[in-house]
Amino acid sequence: MSFISYLVSGLSLGSIYALIALGYTMVYGIAKMLNFAHGDIIMVGGYAAFLAMSASWCPIWLAMIISVTVCTVLGVVIEKVAYRPLRSAPPLAVLITAIGVSYLLQNIALLTQSATPKTFKSIAAGAPPFLLVFEGKAPLFFTKLSDSPYGGESPVLTISMETFLAIVVSLVIMAALTLFINKTKAGKAMLACSEDRGAAQLMGINVNATISMTFAIGSALAAVAAMLMCSAYPLLSPTTGSMPGIKAFVAAVFGGIGSIPGAMIGGVLLGVIEQLSKAYISSQLSDAIVFLVLIVVLIIRPTGIMGKKISEKV
């Protein structure tokens, strides 16, 4: 049972990584840049939701909308102000700018929100756990332990509402995103831009608008990830986004940077590997193990699990 519990929490954490990794990989695929400020968008999304929820008049659903809106606008503005002027600059200049934007966001948060971590109120606060499993009895769904018909017996497996939500919300978003990209005209335009920006322009596709849309989608996903993550791990500080940002970047590389299914698989795998190594090997070494697996994967498949072959027909 404990294995299942670790696996589920790995899947849940991995789903959150996948949402963040999607932002990295889409921006990389279409704008051809590594947006190192992506992790800090998560932090902004967390604070936006936190501040909205601390206003007594603001219901949770509204706080969620506010958080997503703030991040979407922020992503588009950052792209327009910081990255667009560098569209034909060397990649290194863009990378350094992205790191600069990352520090800028962290410092603004530090200045306005202070370094003291805030306790994030879960978006599922007060909800019953998704699942309770007891030895030799029928499992209970959406039931509080205090309402359990099995008296004071303690469950052998508990899956919290936060864990469940992270998996379900991510699955729904990933399915919707896959449909959007493969079935709509705007999605096809994104694929075309990611393959050949010049040829896409010759089709009449507005590349700048497509890149803006990519940043908007990536940042909206980051806001969702922020709320799911802060609900499960409720400490919010100006550097909250850094580590998940780096992990998600690793997940994107792991899956094959630029590949959308790759980011999903990479994110989920990373979360599972991390939680299982925490449980069975060492909680101090779990991050090292994650990176070790990445290195092994990249030695075997340099372009990542789902990465495109580098060679092209000429």
Binding site: K188, L191, D196, G198, L202, M203
Partner: peptide, 29 residues
């Protein structure tokens, strides 16, 4: 991206088809 709708199309050097997309998707683009 504006010039296409003004009635000018360009078959670029080296073809530059979208290799990952299908023939149909290329045509629709």
């Amino acid at each position: 991206h504006r010039i296409v709708s003004m009635g000018m199309a360009h078959v670029p050097e080296g073809r530059r088809v979208f290799a990952q997309l299908t023939v149909y998707e290329n045509l629709m683009l």
